[in-house]
Write a protein that binds this DNA or RNA. Sequence first.
DNA 1: GACACCCGTAACTGCTATTGTTACAATAAG
DNA 2: CTTATTGTAACAATAGCAGTTACGGGTGTC
Lengths: 143, 143
Amino acid sequence: MKRNSRLSLALHTLSHMAFDTEDAQTSADIADHAGTNPVVVRRVLGKLRSAGLLLSERGHSGGWRLARETKHITLADVYDALGESFVAPRGQTDARTCSVAQSLEVQVSQIMKDIEESLVERLSRTTIADIQNSTKREPSHAH
Amino acid sequence: MKRNSRLSLALHTLSHMAFDTEDAQTSADIADHAGTNPVVVRRVLGKLRSAGLLLSERGHSGGWRLARETKHITLADVYDALGESFVAPRGQTDARTCSVAQSLEVQVSQIMKDIEESLVERLSRTTIADIQNSTKREPSHAH
DNA sequence: GACACCCGTAACTGCTATTGTTACAATAAG
DNA sequence: CTTATTGTAACAATAGCAGTTACGGGTGTC
Ligand code: FES
Ligand code: FES
């Protein structure tokens, strides 16, 4: 898997689950179709559950289910749920740097924040269902 | 230093150098005022030189100079010079993934590319000189 | 109750990117 | 020739992330 594969994994899994909303899917199944490990799946999907996008059940015949229709899950919902951000998690603004550096920090941070906002806005315009609709019918794998 | 400190280092150094365009500055001096190491400085500034933003001279009384006025160096110039990018350096699009995943990849990549473009456009609107002008006169350190 | 199934989480490894550091060849000035 | 400085290679230290193993705890089946 590539860099920051969590978003890809989350989106792919949500799309995949929409094909069978009846049965709960186990992390092992999901890991298998995503080419990764069950624990990795549980880690990522756990964040989606915290954000209210998914439900999980323990024990026999447990697994993961969509908490709502993919028509009502946007890419921004997923992005937010993962807590990812282009804006560097600004550490304390080191009070002993010079005023020029501080000004730089402020201005660049502002631009990053604007861009981040713009990204989220773009992501919020597409739902998981939109992705599926833009795909040719009957993908090559069995559902 | 924090994550991806190269942009900060580059911008701060360019700003700093604008205060004294007469003398060349050594990487040791720059490293000192930036709180890092001369080799790190040479690595980062080397990219700015490749991009034509700086000039360097070897040997006695050598060092670094601005290749043009800070009025004509935008934040985008620096960003580009460093070769940084928010858009993940997309590896080969793994032909054996399912069509849904491919569709996801395409659509997310497109959004990222648009955002990247938008970021560069924003950065190109601010010059190094603008940063200095927005700073209170006489910063706390000596120039 | 015994068992099988499955999530939640901690702990560890391996990989990669980044930063810092030392070392040294090449180059230029005095 | 000596000194100053860049250019670069090599290496260590750190941090983040994907992957893996292990196990506790919950839940349905028998
Ligand atoms: S949507 Fe890609 S494996 Fe099902
Ligand atoms: S501009 Fe910050 S140390 Fe000079």
